[in-house]
């Protein structure tokens, strides 16, 4: 059945490609989450009227975030080649794609984090202050905790964008489903490979969206 519909697909290669896509998506998502939360918190806390109000820091962070969001991903990969080489010791394979993937999506997620934190009721932050809470407590137990549903749905959006980016990274040799579709499908004119890869990526996107919505709804007690 499978061979009849997809005669040109090598199952072993496909499995490797799927594995590589998962590998890139999950690791870069973790990196994006950590850096995005840090940048997002910085953006929020240094903005006007907040705990660490600081125009200079805010300006710098906002500028960095905007610059990296503005660069198209495919160009970002090329720009980061020396950095990637220095960091990972190679510029090929799924691991080599990670720095570019993380640097490309962390600023995007940082903005979503900033928006999520802005939605936290200022009165609650004030109540925590009035109780004598430390800034660190306010950050972790009030700001981040109260915004978790938005942080999760933001992470879902970012994860889906990341899958797209992994496919782009595949074209310059990172492996994964994008790579698979490009070399076997496009360059060898094997349409069935392209279709299969597309279907798999669509399924992946749906599953991630479903899981993200589920978790976000579970966490939301409003």
């Amino acid at each position: 059945m499978f061979e009849k519909w997809f005669p040109n697909v090598d199952i072993a290669d496909l499995n490797t490609a799927i594995y590589e896509t998962f590998y890139m998506t999950i690791l870069s998502l973790i990196g994006t989450f950590i850096i995005g939360i840090i940048l997002g918190l910085l953006l929020y806390l240094t903005s006007k009227g907040k705990l660490w109000e600081n125009k200079v820091v805010y300006g710098i962070v906002a500028a960095v975030v905007n610059v990296f969001r503005a660069i198209p991903f495919i160009i970002l990969i090329v720009l980061l080649l020396p950095f990637t080489d220095f960091l990972m010791g190679t510029i090929r394979g799924p691991s080599a794609a990670l720095p570019a993937l993380i640097i490309g999506s962390a600023p995007f997620y940082a903005r979503l984090v900033e928006i999520a934190l802005k939605e936290v009721d200022h009165g609650v932050v004030e109540a925590a202050k009035a109780m004598g809470a430390k800034n660190s407590t306010i950050m972790v137990k009030v700001l981040l905790r109260e915004s978790t549903p938005a942080l999760v749905s933001g992470l879902t959006v970012t994860a889906i964008a990341l899958i797209g980016s992994t496919a782009v990274a595949g074209v310059i040799g990172a492996g994964g489903l994008g790579d698979f579709a490009y070399f076997y499908g496009f360059q060898r004119r094997q349409t069935d490979v392209v279709i299969l890869c597309t279907v798999l990526i669509i399924i992946l996107v749906f599953v991630i969206q479903f899981i993200g919505d589920f978790i976000s709804n579970k966490l939301d007690k409003r």
Partner: peptide, 18 residues
């Protein structure tokens, strides 16, 4: 520490919904 000894009640309650 002083604030821990001063309780405050707010008009809009300001409870943590989570």
């Amino acid at each position: 520490l002083a604030r821990q000894e001063i309780g405050m009640v707010f008009q809009h309650f300001n409870l943590l919904w989570s």
